[in-house]
Design a protein around this nucleic acid. Sequence first.
RNA 1: GCGGGUGUGGCGGAAUGGUAGACGCGACAGACUCAAACUCUGUUUCCGCAAGGAGUGUCGGUUCGAGUCCGACCACCCGCACCA
Length: 851
Amino acid sequence: MSRYEPGLIEAKWQEAWDKAGVFTATRDAARPKYYVLEMFPYPSGRIHMGHVRNYTMGDVVARYKSSCGYSVLHPMGWDAFGMPAENAAMERGGHPKDWTYGNIADMRGQMKPLGLSIDWSREFATCDPEYYGQQQAMFIDMMERGLVYRKAAVVNWDPVDMTVLANEQVIDGKGWRSGAAVERRELTQWFFKISDMAGDLLDALDGLKDWPEKVRLMQANWIGKSRGLQFSFDTVGAPAGFDRLEVYTTRPDTLMGASFAGISPDHPLAKALEATNPAIAAFVAECRRVGTSEEALQTAEKLGLDTGIRVRHPLDPAWELPVYIANFILMDYGTGAIFGCPAHDQRDFEFATKYHLPITPVFVAEGTDETTLTEAFTPMKSERVRYIRGVNGSTLMTGDEGVAEAIALAEQRGFGQGVTKFRLRDWGVSRQRYWGCPIPVVHCATCGVVPEKKENLPVELPYDVSFDKPGNPLDRHPTWAKTTCPKCGAAARRETDTMDTFVDSSWYYARFTAPRANTPTVAEDADYWMNVDQYIGGIEHAILHLLYSRFFARAMNETGHLPAKAREPFNALFTQGMVTHEIYLTRDGNGRPVYHLPEDVIRSETGATLADGTAVEVIPSAKMSKSKKNVVDPMNIIRDFGADTARWFVMSDSPPERDVEWTSAGAEATAKHLGRVWRLADEISRDETPAGDEDIALARAAARAIQDVTQGIEGFAFNKSVAALYAFTNTLSKSKAGGGAKRDAMRTMAQLMSPMVPHLAEEVWVMLGGEGLVARAPWPKADPALLVEDNVTLPIQINGKRRAEISVPKTMPAAEVEKIALADEDVVRFLAGQPVKKIIVVPGRIINVVV
RNA sequence: GCGGGUGUGGCGGAAUGGUAGACGCGACAGACUCAAACUCUGUUUCCGCAAGGAGUGUCGGUUCGAGUCCGACCACCCGCACCA
């Protein structure tokens, strides 16, 4: 008798699949297509358990759909541009390109042994010139279409390293390497006009029925449609050119409760005042010392400075309000200026309390009187309140009605108008970095900004760059930027900004349909394969990546690169939970964190140390990320127990949408189970027991297993499919059925297991005389007759507490069930003669006796 | 700060408003073995000898019946536009 040896069988079956070309995606008009895609990985160099979980989920779906008769496209590629490659070059020397392609080779080498049903012939990396050249072509098309423009925008500037920092690189307002206080600096940058499509991107969310509700909600909130009033205050004492101050508010009904006006430190008025007033200049400079992220701005202590300027209240010119510069007002939202109503906005309330400004209620709860407020009163707009200082005096109405009334009044009096605004800002794609897709334009002294000619694409990154100093290597390259104007032929300079890596990942799904084409896409292929039927990835991408992809698909449609049906590229979305792990860190001389890999840390009951004994701080359950180094290497499990064990392990237990804390315990137990299945198959293949009474019970168990496993896969509850397979294994190993019946059941087991543990499934399939590859066998169907139960066990509750149970035929009428229940000896004992008030019989479920 | 989510045994988790804890891990007991490992059988929410009682983050509500629905709160996680 032989043993279960994953090392041997896994290589064998992977070769067999390859040879048969089982996973090569082909356009097949005779079959329905199914496109399953997992978010492609960043090539960090090592796969981690999050990858294994993500790609195994996709593989289960791909293999299952293939068995159901679909022509499946299941590709893989690399999100290969980005900062880590440049950081590696700076820290360890070497070149981002070599580092990236080396990592890709390593990761491919780690993924292949997993036995994923991927069509590797379609693989590409976003840093391949063949890919980013097509991206440049689309950028030019989008320029012509008016979807691209330039404007000034602020970046985080490190004054010591003389470089732009990502938000991630700003820690407590300081640069991560230099430790210098970060400044905000304005640069002219490239933008995609995503805000033009804000309304469509919002409305179309309703059609995404197979997306998680929470993702649609998050996107809707992000796009942030609001109806409000835009109006201007007349100013008193403002510099020339600032006679009026334009503000936007979603609560114009609270206008009579206004106690101050506020402007962003980045507002043009603040900039004008800064030039002449040292106190204001100092305050604004202080505000700019916070990073550019919204999080940093909103969590900072709320500070304001009275500018001395006053504005006249639009409904009472005699009433003047002070104008403050306030650090929590965002220049990017609305007009960058607000009026504050402390009585009905908690942030304004705190601000007014701090600066001793009046707090005047505009409305009170229905049926109450005006009192001194200790916090802002902020009911839902749909709630009815009693206005005591409404724009039209005192009435009882909802906030929504109050807002509509205020807008109508403002429009009638001509001091403002109702407008619809979106929170969504245009997508800034400029990055002052080397390792990204060059923006394919040329700056000419006479012609201005000119797109590169398409025949000159790709604009390729130069290889001879250095990373010995910070800043953009493209910008200081001696020759690369020197070119000629595509329009007039004069000497000109290339754009040295590269694109945000989100651009790369906004269309890769479309490129997979024709990965080698010399146009971005090919109509017939895009028509056949699009849309992605099932997209799978992390919840951390719920907003940005998915919103940008939805925008890009629309832009590609409008520039002729995708059919109209692909404007929403992902039919169904599944967001898997993250694999989390403890973070290990020590501190450098300046108190900044230095992260350590799990394999470098010695964990004991009392704490954790490095090999040299240095104490290590442990942060529990955090998202695995390369920058925090809390990644776990699945290769050890694959080496010791095989890919099927790794795959089965990540599919069992935790529901796919939930985060899972990685622990190394349990992998061994998984391997044991697979060994047990193998032995069971081996025994059954030689079982000569004659057919008997038990055969039907086994057939019923198999039918139930088919139903449960199928439902689990269809419903993305792979953990339940795995549980059903465990249960079926237990039943089968204890069954007294005949050898023939057991072999039938075991073959069904092989098929049901095949999406999760495809190698073992092939092996079992062969042992039991299955024909061909189980990967090509049609998915089993449960015989409905075998799923019907004749008898059912009904629990009996007395006053909602379970006290007894009875077994009755499933079809027995309720009245008869009632009689049997009341006659049950346990029921009689518990009732102890008390009169029954009511009896509830839920057919097939439960009986509740109320006394 | 704003937006979104999660919370059930020692652990991972299961449960169309209807028997809470399926299935697995771990633990314990037994069988096999000279012995151990492997394997197999069984027990395993807590308190209690039992009868019984308690129990799904906390507090309250709706219901014949709540892990599930509603309200308030607590804790943790994700996102916040230059991490990918």
